[in-house]
Structure formats: C-alpha cells, structure tokens
C-alpha cells in the first residue's frame, strides 16, 4: 500500500516539514504520494514532483484550500485516504490541525508526533514532553501519523520525477472563513525551526536585560526563547516560552542563560544537540544536561561571548 503525505507549502514551494514527512514515509515503505492542496499551488506541486522518492503528486487547486482550513481539507484527504495504508502530515501547526480531523472522519486513531518508524504499524513517539518514549502500535486499516520535524532528515529536493495528477476539489464546507494572518516580522528565525536558540530565565532580572540576549542572538542568527519563570515574571511574552507547557525545541545549539533548569523547562529543550548553560549558581540543575557549562555573571559573560563570536 502506498503512503500519502499531506504537503505543507507556501503555494510556490514546499515547507521543509514536508520533506521530513517524505523521509518518514519512505521509512514506512511502499510508494510515496504527496497531496498538494491549495490555491495557485502549481509551483509547490512541481517542487514535490522532483523530491527524491516521491512517485506521484496529487494536486487539488481550488479556492477552498487557499489557507489550509482543516474543515475544507479534511474531506479531500478522507476521499483519497481509502486507497492508502498511511496518511502522514508534518507535526506542525498546519498538520496538527488537519490530521486528527482526517483520522476521526476515517474512524481511526492518530499517532502524533512520531520520532521513529519501527515497522509499518509501530512507531516511537515522545510522551510527557519527551520525558518518556512510547512505542505504539496501530491496527487500524489506515494509519494517520504526524511526523516530528526534528526527528528525520529532509528528503532531497531533487532526483525525483513523479507524475503529477489533478484531483477533484471537494468544495467549501462553509464552516470557517480565513480572516487574515499576522506573521512575525522578526528578522530572527522561529523558535521551533531555529538552528540556534538563546534563552533567558529568571536570572535575566528584567525584560530590558533581554537586550543583551538579543544582541547575542543576532550575532548567531538565533531565535530568542525564555523559561516559564521569565515569562511568569513578565520579562517577555508567553510565546517565548520553551518548556513542557510552551514550545518543544531541538536546535543544533541551545544557549541557556540565567535558567536554573526546572523540569518543565528541561522537558522542552533537552533534545537539543548541544546545550550551553551560563549561570552564576554552579549547583543549578541546568548544568546536569549541559554539554558546556560556564559558571559566572551572565551580565559579563554574554556581552563577552557576543564580542568574541
């Protein structure tokens, strides 16, 4: 049975999350098909056709798919799903919104946020914010799976020569209307996709003091994050929060500044490849997970680090 990947795209290009899902699809085995649904998405469809390992691209180009509304996308996917053993989506805000709606309409369970494919019906996934790893098996006829973006490599964008086939649109469900988006204009990368993250905790002392972290972040082309303690203290807005109740991140490099390392914070960042901790308290739990720890005054260390990079 083939695997269907629901593509996340910007109309003219695929999002990296889609390439990750293609790799997971290839690990499951069987031909990989990619569904590109949107309005004016021919560019993304062409891009999907050249991705290594993709056999067929299905394109649903219609106004009702313009903004990725789950209410309109789910019936399209459900109509196609019967011919597939698996339906995969990236575990991004797009995929997390659509996939469970598809699964429920198919009356099947969903396996969320998988980090490894053990066999076509068995997957590993983190639970308790990554503090435990569960191996779960699905016996449902169609397995709906979302794929964690940090867990698989991206499929090569070239090398494939898939056929492209148009599929009929399913119409507007009339339930939801897209009103607009306010995408972050920050020059900095997003927390969940950044290669480097610089995070501050209660030790920053104030919101104004985050300026030194921002300088460091700019030097490293990093995103800026924070611990729950820093958010609760009002230093930075809630969307900076890395942790069990905030964003789960796994960058190449995570620099924790003035963060003691509460469990709830560690849960959100301990899968980072390299962790650096800067803290004046040498007993701080953050040092137990840090690859490189530097004990001292962050107000001296951070500017020095910025100047030496």
């Amino acid at each position: 049975m083939a695997v269907l990947v629901i593509a996340e795209h910007s109309g003219d290009a695929l999002k990296p999350s889609t390439l990750v899902a293609v790799t997971a699809a290839a690990a499951i085995g069987g031909p990989v098909h990619v569904l590109v649904a949107g309005q004016g998405c021919a560019g993304a469809a062409r891009a999907a056709a050249t991705v290594a390992g993709v056999e067929k691209v299905l394109v649903a180009d219609a106004a009702e798919y313009a903004n990725g509304l789950a209410e309109n996308l789910a019936p399209l996917v459900v109509g196609l799903a019967k011919g597939y053993g698996h339906v995969l989506a990236p575990a991004t805000s797009f995929g997390k919104n659509v996939a469970p709606r598809v699964a429920a309409l198919l009356d099947v369970a969903q396996v969320s946020d998988v980090t490894a494919v053990i066999s076509p019906d068995t997957f590993e996934r983190p639970i308790y914010a990554g503090n435990a790893i569960a191996t779960v098996q699905s016996k449902d006829p169609v397995k709906v799976v979302t794929v964690r973006g940090t867990a698989f490599d991206k499929a090569a964008e070239t090398g494939g020569s898939a056929s492209v086939e148009a599929v009929a649109a399913t119409g507007d469900a009339g339930l939801a209307t897209f009103k607009g988006a306010e995408l972050s204009k920050s020059e900095r990368p997003e927390l969940t996709s950044a290669r480097v993250i610089v995070s501050g905790g209660r030790g920053m002392g104030s919101g104004e003091n985050f300026a030194i972290l921002e300088s460091l972040a700019d030097r490293m082309n990093a995103a800026v994050g924070a611990s729950r303690a820093a958010v609760d203290a009002g230093f930075v807005p809630n969307d900076y929060q890395v942790g069990q109740t905030g964003k789960i991140v796994a960058p190449e490099l995570y620099v924790a500044v003035g963060i003691s390392g509460a469990i709830q914070h560690l849960a959100g960042m301990k899968d980072s490849k390299v962790i650096v901790a800067i803290n004046k308290d040498e007993e701080a739990p953050i040092f137990q997970v840090a690859d490189y720890g530097l004990v001292g005054d962050l107000f001296k260390i951070v500017p020095e680090l910025t100047s030496k990079l």
């Binding site: 009103k179 988006a181 306010e182 972050s184």
Partner: peptide
C-alpha cells in the same frame, strides 16, 4: 501558528 498568528 508556527509563523505567528492567524484569525479565522
């Protein structure tokens, strides 16, 4: 959403 906010 991943890139910021959207309103429906």
């Amino acid at each position: 959403v991943d890139g910021g906010l959207e309103t429906v």
